[in-house]
């Protein structure tokens, strides 16, 4: 909790406990209720909730009043019930499981390739000169543009989806690691030279730890892109997964299913990002703070 926020809470506490006494730091609020209202401060997190919550309430009310057509924008409670029904029927877990599996496999493959190639180009200038121009030019192709080729090569089944997701996860990991390894402070490398570290020790004890924060940033954005591409892959042709649920909802004209899928993507995407962040913080130890 920040100090500013603590102050706010203090002010809030004082206002709520003894509104008659002077409450604001300037001491002007001794009299009327208006001036004591002025010093009411709400914590930042709470401020962020005001608009979403009131939007939800308004949405619910409008939907119930029949202002919003239910096949176009169903009420939040209807969406919640849809999710619940899917969960009870067992469909939800099957689709979520399949999507999570695709993201995990695609991300692992892409991140592994990004780590190997990024480490190679970050460490050896020969590898960088050989590989980096090619990879950089491939990066400028929007990844979705590879879909027809993947479909042609790998078919409509899992492989093409995994390939697309891996491709999305690959570039941020590759770029961040490669650049971070190249940009380790030469002054620190000089310390490594002083202690006569071998090339291997130099990488393990100095270059990798120094590059770690940016590598973790790369992993996080790689994971984000893996989620983006799983949506694309599942929208383009799948018989299962959250993306398939979406397409299904669209085909059958059930907006509640589409919106439920959006929420599922958001929840699981956020959850995996949070997990990755936690792992990153653990790895970075004291540097994270």
């Amino acid at each position: 909790m920040s100090t500013a926020e603590q102050n706010r809470r203090l002010v809030w506490k004082r206002v709520t406990e003894s509104p008659a006494k002077p409450t604001s730091p300037s001491g002007r609020s001794a009299g009327g209720s208006i001036s004591s209202l002025r010093s009411i401060r709400v914590p930042d997190q709470l401020l962020g909730w005001i608009i979403p919550v009131s939007t939800l309430v308004l949405w619910e009310l409008l939907a119930r009043a029949g202002v919003l057509p239910p096949n176009w924008l169903p009420a939040p409670t209807v969406i919640a019930r849809t999710i619940y029904e899917l969960a009870v029927a067992g469909d939800l877990w099957r689709h979520v499981g399949i999507t999570l599996g695709r993201v995990a496999l695609g991300f692992l493959l892409g991140a592994a390739a990004g780590t190997i190639l990024g480490g190679l180009t970050g460490y050896a200038s020969l590898a960088r000169k050989l590989l980096d121009p090619l990879l950089q030019s491939l990066r400028s192709v929007p990844s979705i543009a590879w879909v027809p080729l993947f479909l042609l090569w790998l078919g409509i089944q899992e492989s093409s989806k995994i390939a697309l997701i891996s491709l999305g996860a690959f570039f941020p990991v590759y770029l961040n690691l490669s650049v971070a390894m190249r940009h380790v402070d030469p002054k620190l490398l000089e310390v490594g030279r002083l202690y006569r570290l071998t090339s291997f020790q130099m990488v393990r004890r100095l270059i990798l730890p120094a590059a770690l924060p940016e590598y973790i940033v790369g992993l996080r954005s790689g994971l984000g892109l893996a989620w983006m591409f799983v949506v694309a892959a599942e929208l383009l042709g799948a018989s299962s997964g959250i993306g398939f649920l979406m397409v299904d909802g669209q085909m059958t004209g059930r907006a509640a299913i589409i919106l439920a899928s959006v929420i599922l993507f958001a929840v699981f995407g956020k959850a995996t990002d949070w997990m990755m962040n936690a792992v990153g913080r653990k790895l970075l130890g004291h540097r994270a703070r």
């Binding site: 002054k187 620190l188 000089e190 310390v191 100095l206 730890p209 120094a210 770690l212 970075l284 130890g285 540097r287």
Partner: peptide, 9 residues
Amino acid sequence: FQEHRLFSW
């Protein structure tokens, strides 16, 4: 050195 050049990790 003039800078401490310690390893932050």
